[in-house]
Amino acid sequence: MNNIMLPAPHKILKVVKETRAEYTFRVAYEGETRHGQFFQLSIPKVGEAPISVSGKGEGWVEFTIRKVGRLTEGIFGLGAGDLLFMRGPYGNSFPVEEFEGKDLVVICGGTGMAPVKTLLNHFYDHPEVCRSVHLIAGFKDLDCVLFTEELEKFKGRFHTVATLDTMQAPGFQTGMVTAHIPAIPFARFADYNVVIVGPPVMMHFAALACRSAGVPEEKIWVSFERKMSCAVGKCGHCKINETYVCLEGPVFNYTKAKDLFD
Score class of each variant (00 low, 15 high):
7 P>N: 13
8 A>Y: 15
16 V>L: 12
16 V>E: 09
21 A>C: 11
22 E>K: 13
23 Y>L: 14
27 V>W: 08
28 A>K: 11
44 P>W: 05
48 E>T: 05
52 S>I: 04
53 V>D: 01
54 S>F: 04
57 G>Q: 05
60 W>C: 00
61 V>W: 06
64 T>W: 04
69 G>R: 01
75 I>Q: 00
76 F>C: 04
79 G>M: 11
80 A>F: 05
81 G>H: 02
89 P>M: 11
93 S>I: 13
99 F>G: 00
103 D>Q: 12
107 I>F: 11
109 G>W: 05
111 T>D: 07
116 V>Q: 00
117 K>R: 12
118 T>H: 01
120 L>P: 06
121 N>G: 06
124 Y>P: 03
128 E>I: 09
132 S>P: 11
135 L>Q: 03
140 K>Q: 01
142 L>A: 11
142 L>T: 10
143 D>G: 15
147 F>S: 06
152 E>M: 08
159 H>C: 03
161 V>W: 06
161 V>T: 09
169 A>L: 07
175 G>C: 12
176 M>D: 11
178 T>M: 07
189 F>C: 04
190 A>P: 10
191 D>M: 12
198 G>H: 11
199 P>M: 15
206 A>S: 09
207 A>Y: 04
215 V>M: 03
215 V>Q: 01
215 V>S: 03
216 P>Q: 02
217 E>W: 11
221 W>S: 07
222 V>W: 01
223 S>Q: 13
231 A>V: 08
237 H>W: 08
238 C>V: 07
243 T>F: 03
243 T>M: 03
252 F>K: 03
252 F>I: 04
258 K>D: 03
